[in-house]
Design a protein around this nucleic acid. Structure first.
Lengths: 184, 184
DNA sequence: GTCTATATAGGGATAGAC
DNA sequence: GTCTATCCCTATATAGAC
């Protein structure tokens, strides 16, 4: 019978997020999914790379639906940005879970997935830029602020894991909407 | 005869920075240093972990001497911060080289070096806080801005590698001094 | 201080029975 | 769809000659 594939992928996610691509060994994956090697290769004929791709796709869809699409709603810009902060806090578990885009930016993971990582980051910045333009910021300033937003989120994730405290991440998220919209 | 140990460590640095701890295999290390396995273990009896520790110590000393100590000079705060930006641009090669602190924050690297990573980040934030207090910011605001600075630098490194462009990193560094000192 | 050879474990991946 | 067994390769690490 057709098993719930996305159920497996959901169990794959934390392994790749925590260990990165090269650190996500078949042993760790097997343990986390409670599936033997043969089963894993049955579901993912492309092997480990296929599993990583499935994780990337799964999280990408979650991100699109939960973070990016609401940025295009018809609510006020400030409301859309607040909604993004709330969803990001969930998505990154208060900053305790790392971003797959940075987890895949080392060694072999970088070689394999750089194009997709780049595309995801660009899309995120583009969508944010659009919201800020709708809030009457100049195109140039909007793009700069959008970039700043992504920078602050990614940096806060690094600091939060490094300092072992969720405080920096949650503070950044809270300040973000007003800071992005403030007058130059 | 005593060989120049730090010469070897210098060659070790880019390997651990690029691949992280688990991705820095003996093969890659051997290739980068042009030393055979036996030679590597002769110089580093503690093996790979010892090599990683040597890299961490080496970069830590460079960072202390080049970034942190000048923050305590008797120049004007704004001048000290500008000097930090310049040195960081060198240290991270315009954002193209990653931070060893984030490279060691995955999997086994995290387990082994988290305490040292945490200490290094804390020290950096503390030193910056002190400079901002000397610039007449309140203690609370100074600490928050100091944290923001490290967040922005780390985030810009992520974005710069992800987008394959040095622009975000260099822009952040350029804006940093004035932004940290601006009135609330 | 570096070489060759080797030990032992674990890596990713596959075959065939069930 | 999962199991056991196995393949080949690479991982870290060490021993002993030179």
């Amino acid at each position: 019978m057709a098993i719930d594939k996305s159920e497996i992928v959901r169990k794959l996610v934390p392994v790749f997020r925590h260990y990165g691509y090269e650190g996500a060994t078949l042993s760790r994956i097997s343990k986390a999914t409670e599936l033997g090697r043969a089963s894993l290769y049955h579901h993912f004929p492309a092997g480990k790379q296929g599993m990583a791709q499935a994780v990337l796709t799964y999280l990408g869809e979650w991100f699109d639906a939960t973070i990016l699409d609401p940025l295009q709603s018809d609510k006020e810009p400030v409301e859309r940005l607040k909604a993004m902060s709330d969803s990001l806090n969930q998505f990154y578990n208060h900053g305790q879970d790392s971003c797959i885009l940075s987890a895949f930016s080392w060694g072999e993971g970088h070689d394999l997935f750089h194009a997709q990582v780049q595309q995801a980051l660009k899309t995120w910045v583009d969508r944010l830029t659009q919201v800020l333009i709708e809030a009457d910021l100049s195109a140039a300033l909007a793009r700069q602020r959008a970039e700043d937003a992504v920078i602050q989120i990614q940096g806060a994730l690094v600091l939060t894991r490094g300092l072992n405290s969720t405080a920096p991440f949650e503070r950044i998220l809270m300040q973000l909407p007003d800071e992005l919209l403030k007058l130059a």
